[in-house]
């Protein structure tokens, strides 16, 4: 389970001004649930997820992953977490199998378990025919599958995927989305980010819409449709964005 409580991250910009990349964010992701963080580029999705993965420290607020506090128990948080971001790379001179094995060892998974996990994930992600090829020689889609496998080789209860399908062809993207569904069915807790509305619709149990670091709306698609009386996904999103900017204007007025 992920519990986010008043999480805030401030970056100091070049011109000396403060940027609230994540602003007082609170939400929960339950076991066996897929929650999608939905927002445009620069909304603060990556920053939020990086804080959950403990590589960034929040300025205020905190969060727990499987009950472990991201500030005080970062080591346990990372051990219980599979984290993948769409723009991370791989070691080009290692093979797919070596890569996954390396990360398995870093997560303290024992050797026989690593071997069986590799086979298991190769089945699900259709990777058998390139397991022993150097990463250098793989296509973008193949690389992303290796990335997924390496990030969850330790079979973590919580998974965070930051725009994992960005730049992929539809077949690979579909394969990955199916894989994530499979994870959910096995009782994992999944936080997934995207800026593509249709993808969010297809995969999400619940949506957390964020914009400029703040939550715009939260709920299942049905909840959101009922609340806005709109049908089209894009319209719903724009509705909430307009609402929030109106509020800001009201406040300043």
């Amino acid at each position: 389970m992920i519990e986010v409580k008043n999480l805030t991250k401030i970056f100091l910009q070049k011109n000396g001004e403060e940027l609230f990349a994540v602003n007082d964010l609170s939400f929960i992701v339950q076991k066996g649930e897929i929650v999608v963080l939905l927002g445009v580029n620069g909304a603060g999705k990556t920053t939020c997820m990086r804080m959950l993965s403990t590589v960034l420290k929040p300025n205020s607020g905190t969060a727990t992953v499987e009950g472990f506090d991201i500030l005080k128990q970062s080591q346990q948080v990372r051990a219980n977490l599979g984290y993948l971001s769409g723009d991370t790379g791989l070691y080009s001179r290692l093979t797919a199998r070596e890569t996954i094995t390396y990360f398995g060892r870093l997560y303290d998974v024992d050797e026989p378990k690593i071997k069986s996990r590799i086979l298991e994930m190769a089945d699900l992600l259709d990777m058998h025919n390139f397991l022993d090829k150097k990463i250098d020689l793989l296509s973008t889609g193949m690389k992303q599958k290796v990335s997924i496998a390496r990030s969850i080789v330790h079979d973590p209860p919580v998974m965070i995927f930051d725009e994992p399908t960005a730049g992929l062809d539809i077949l690979t993207a579909k394969n990955i989305v199916n894989f994530i569904h499979n994870c959910k069915e096995n009782g994992k807790c999944v936080l997934f980010s995207t800026h593509i509305m249709r993808e969010a619709e297809r995969i999400a149990d619940r949506i957390v819409m964020i914009h400029e670091g703040k939550i715009l709306a939260e709920g299942s698609w049905d909840d959101l449709r009922t609340a806005t009386q709109l049908h089209d996904l894009d319209d719903i999103f724009i509705h909430f964005v307009n609402n929030s900017s109106r509020e800001v204007n009201d406040e300043s007025a």
């Binding site: 990372r78 051990a79 870093l106 997560y107 990335s147 390496r150 990030s151």
Partner: peptide
Amino acid sequence: ERGTLETILVSAAR
């Protein structure tokens, strides 16, 4: 540069 640093930072290695 190659975007691999984050992958080891989020791993269980200290």
